[in-house]
Amino acid sequence: MDIAAMFFQDWEGIVRTVLVGALAYVTLVLFLRISGKRTLAKLNAFDLVVTVALGSTLSAIVLQESVALAEGATALALLILAQYLVASFSVRSQRFAAAVRSEPALLARNGAFCAQSMKRERVTQDEAISAIRSQGGHSVSEVESLVLESDGTISVSFLAASAS
Rank of each mutant, 00 (worst) to 15 (best):
L43W: 07
A73F: 03
N110D: 11
K42N: 15
K37F: 04
T124A: 05
M6T: 02
Q116E: 10
F158G: 11
F31R: 02
E144V: 01
A68S: 15
A97S: 15
F158C: 11
E12K: 14
L107F: 00
F8A: 07
M118N: 04
G111I: 07
M1A: 15
F158R: 10
S145A: 11
L69I: 13
R133G: 00
A99D: 10
N44V: 02
G111Q: 09
V156L: 11
Q64G: 00
S93D: 14
S90H: 08
A45P: 01
A163R: 15
G21H: 13
E144S: 12
Q116T: 02
Q94Y: 04
A98P: 04
T153C: 11
A115S: 09
M118E: 01
L23T: 04
R133W: 05
L48I: 08
G111D: 05
D2A: 07
T124G: 08
L19Y: 01
S35L: 05
L78M: 13
Q9W: 05
G13F: 08
F113I: 03
Q64L: 14
L159P: 03
S59N: 08
E149V: 02
G55M: 04
P104G: 08
S93E: 11
R38T: 00
L85V: 15
V52M: 14
G72I: 04
L28M: 15
A82Q: 08
A128I: 00
A75P: 03
V62C: 08
R101F: 00
L48T: 12
L106G: 04
A105L: 09
S162N: 10
A53F: 05
F89S: 13
D10L: 02
T124E: 05
Q125K: 13
I132C: 01
S155D: 12
V20Y: 12
